[in-house]
């Protein structure tokens, strides 16, 4: 959604996904942290209000092992169950129905993957799964390729957020195709959130400067040497990128243009 032309200076609209408002435009994952305690500390530093979570078998041999919900309360943060590891629409639906039963939430992140080497989404299967989930009453935020054609199909199917990858999951390579991300932003009537590929703060700022409504990241924070500090950096980067987008950048020029007046030189 293109807010840059409609908002007055000093104003920003909240991020609204499926009728829910968020003041933070950063969404973070909860995987790969050394401990859930560190995860919770990073989450607090990030200012994020929404977190992605996975659905997995309970460890029956150790029912006393630490649990995510003891460190990050679903009362305080919006849990966004994902379908990570699912390679078919049926797997994804089975997983999210279990998530809905366990948590009672219908806002979900759909991802249907293809090849473990690049974890690129299988878009035909993703679209099919999205249609099935929406028919089943889910609000679907969808991880997708940066293909504007499929992004439009997903929106037409009723997805509540379009989440194109910036680069392969966990790669930290940054926004590889800003042209496509911008095309998706321009055409979309629902929030566009770059999901995957961010490696450092400037990558998040680039996504926001392209006009994205938010950024979702996991590894960039979890695998930083100091995850809590990186979480704080990401918080600032998302705000900075958003503000720069709303401000409207100066045009790029081919030659220098002095900042000090040329008249009155001694």
């Amino acid at each position: 959604m293109d807010d840059a032309t409609t908002l007055k200076p000093q104003q920003d609209a909240p991020l609204v996904v499926a009728g829910r408002s968020f003041s933070s435009r950063l969404i973070i994952g909860t995987g790969k942290y050394e401990t859930y305690a560190l995860n919770a500390e990073a989450l607090q530093a990030s200012g994020a209000e929404m977190i992605t979570v996975a659905v997995r078998r309970v460890n029956l041999s150790d029912p006393g092992e630490p649990r995510l919900i003891d460190f990050i309360s679903p009362e305080d943060y919006t849990y966004l169950p994902n379908t990570a590891g699912c390679f078919t629409g049926e797997d994804a639906i089975r997983t999210l129905r279990l998530a809905r039963e366990a948590g009672g939430w219908n806002l979900v992140k759909l991802e249907v993957l293809s090849d473990p080497k690049h974890l690129y989404p299988d878009m035909a299967e993703t679209l099919r799964a999205a249609e099935m989930l929406i028919a089943d009453g889910f609000e679907v935020m969808v991880y997708c390729s940066d293909d504007p054609v499929y992004a439009r199909k997903l929106e037409e199917a009723g997805c509540c957020a379009i989440m194109p990858l910036g680069a392969p999951i966990g790669s930290g390579l940054g926004i590889q195709n800003p042209v496509n991300i911008r095309l998706i932003v321009e055409q979309s009537g629902v929030p566009v959130i770059v999901d995957a590929g961010v490696g450092t703060a400037s990558d998040a700022a680039v996504a926001m400067e392209l006009g994205c409504d938010g950024v979702l990241m996991n590894t960039a924070i979890a695998e930083a040497k100091d995850p809590v500090r990186m979480a704080r950096a990401m918080r600032h980067a998302v705000v900075a990128g958003r503000e720069a987008y709303l401000a409207g950048r100066m045009p790029k020029k081919r030659y220098a243009d002095p900042s000090s007046p040329l008249s009155g030189l001694i």
Partner: peptide, 10 residues
């Protein structure tokens, strides 16, 4: 029988 719960994920 499958019994699942939420764990950290991206």
């Amino acid at each position: 029988i499958e019994i699942v719960a939420f764990v950290g994920g991206g």
